[in-house]
Each structure stands twice: as C-alpha cells, then as structure tokens.
C-alpha cells in the first residue's frame, strides 16, 4: 500500500435527535448519515479511526439516543458532559483543538434546540479550517487533500478538493445510515468527561414555541382585468384535486398534464 493511502483520523460530531412525529429522542438522521460516511471511509482507507463526540447533558433519554450511534458498530463515544442549555461550541472546539483529527464530520442541523446549523461554521471559524457543506461522498484522501462530492439539488453532484484538516457537514443527500443494532449499542462505552460550560444566555431569552403551521400562500394571479382574475380563480377551482379527464384526446390530456407540470415547475 502506498504511504498516502494511510488511514486518517475522523471525528464525527453527533447530537441527540428528535423524532419528527412523536418527539422522542433518537439518533439524529443527518448525524447518523455522517457517521455512516465515516464508517465508509474507514473501510475505504484501512487504518482510519473514527471517533464519536457529543457535548451535552447525560440523561437516560439522551444516553439511549446516543447509543443509537454506537449500535452502528463503534466501541466508545466521548461525551463532553455539560449542563442542559449550555453552549456546546466552545467545549467541542477546545476538545478538537487539543487532539485535532484530520476530518470532522457533522450533520447540517440539529433536531433539537435552536437547530440553526451554525455549529459546523462556528467550529470552522474557531479552528480556522475549511468547511464543505452538503457532502454526499468522500472519493479519496491523498497527501492531506480530500476529494469530495458535494450534493446539489435533484441528485446532481459537484466534485471538490479540500485541504485537510477540514470540517464537512452532511444533509439528507449523504448515504442513509445503517441500522443500529441493539447488542453493540448495549455493550459500547460512553466515556464521559465533565467540561466547563457557559450557559447560552441569548437562547434563554428567546421565546420558543412549537412550530405553527405556516399559512399557505395564495396563488397570486397576475391578471390584468377582473375577468382574467375571475377566469384564473375559476380555472383553479376546476383544476383542483381529483380532476378526471375522460373521453378526451391524447393531446388534450397531455396538455392538462403539461399545464400541471409547468405550474409545479418541475420541467427544466
């Protein structure tokens, strides 16, 4: 094996997720995808080491969610123990700076708390490392330079080269996480270290409420006359759900479909 093919050190930052329907704690989807990516990298570059890192309070609920990551096949998770409502960024930055890995992988956004997706950027800014978002795959790592595929909308991909050490964030385009197995999750170790924590005062001042349903924007009809507006409104009513065109020619049918495709803007 060539020397540049040597394994790298990868740290995966994971958070406690929240199921969108029931709100139960779980492994966060994007973080789990990040870990999946790291495990794939470990396979691709033998000798790589994957470390799991989480900063937050230790509770039964959190622990079971964190063990969800361990069930993907890791032995330990480093837990930087902090009080609820603390700012995780300084603790994580300090921990990463003390023993810098070559690659830090994190999900784009957390499923709890502010969930602003700032964490990777804040770490990159503090550590002075380059950051790539929307990662889909790591193609290769050679001579301290990683070749990555970044996900663009509609399944498109962009190839990037980034100098390590770097932070990458993954979203839903990264490979889906493998199943978490009960046995390894139960056996694995949570290595907890208490760290000093600053409370996130700003967050505490904000008002948090369960998300309201956003009002659906009415279709604004750019019609010049009342008649056109009326026509547009009437056409919408008749074109609403469950319209069935029977006994029309193929062209008429195709026209109706084309109209819908144009309205939805999926034709490019």
């Amino acid at each position: 094996m060539r020397p540049e093919q040597q394994g790298i050190e990868v740290a995966v930052l994971v958070s406690v997720g929240r199921h969108p329907i029931t709100g139960r704690a779980r492994r966060a989807d994007q973080d789990a995808r990040g870990l999946e990516l790291a495990l794939g990298l470990e396979r691709q570059l033998p000798g790589s080491r994957v470390g799991l890192l989480h900063a937050g309070p230790r509770s039964e609920e959190n622990e079971s969610a964190l063990r969800g990551y361990l069930g993907m096949g890791l032995d330990t998770l480093t837990l930087l123990e902090q009080a609820e409502g603390s700012d995780a960024i300084p603790a994580l930055a300090e921990h990463l700076a003390a023993a810098p890995p070559q690659l830090v992988i994190t999900g784009a956004r957390a499923e709890r708390g502010e969930g602003s997706g700032l964490l990777p950027y804040a770490l990159a800014e503090r550590l002075g490392w380059p950051l790539v978002n929307g990662l889909a795959a790591v193609e290769k790592v050679e001579n301290g330079v990683a070749t990555l595929l970044q996900a663009l909308p509609r399944g498109q991909r962009r190839r990037l080269k980034v100098r390590l050490p770097a932070i990458v964030s993954v979203d839903a385009a990264a490979p889906a996480a493998r199943q978490s197995a009960f046995g390894p999750a139960r056996r694995a170790e949570l290595a907890a270290t208490p760290v000093p924590a600053e409370p996130d005062r700003e967050l505490a001042e904000w008002q948090l409420a369960p998300a309201r349903k956003r009002p659906k924007r009415l279709k604004i009809v750019k019609a010049a006359s009342a008649r056109d507006r009326f026509k547009a409104a009437a056409a919408k009513a008749e074109g609403g759900s469950g319209q069935v065109l029977e006994g029309v020619s193929a062209e008429q049918g195709a026209e109706a479909i084309l109209k819908l495709l144009n309205e939805e803007g999926v034709l490019r």
Partner: peptide, 26 residues
C-alpha cells in the same frame, strides 16, 4: 385515479407521446 390530483383516461403511449411532443415544442 381516486388518489390522483389529475387523471387522464386513455392510452398511455399516445398521451406520453403527445406530452413529449409538447414539451419539446415548449
């Protein structure tokens, strides 16, 4: 058809061909 927002009853090959022609024209 019951689920669909828009349903066209007819020969699928013809309708698709017409749709393709229209999209190309557009």
């Amino acid at each position: 058809i019951k689920r669909a927002d828009l349903a066209v009853i007819g020969d699928s090959a013809e309708i698709l061909a017409a749709l393709v022609a229209m999209v190309e024209q557009q």
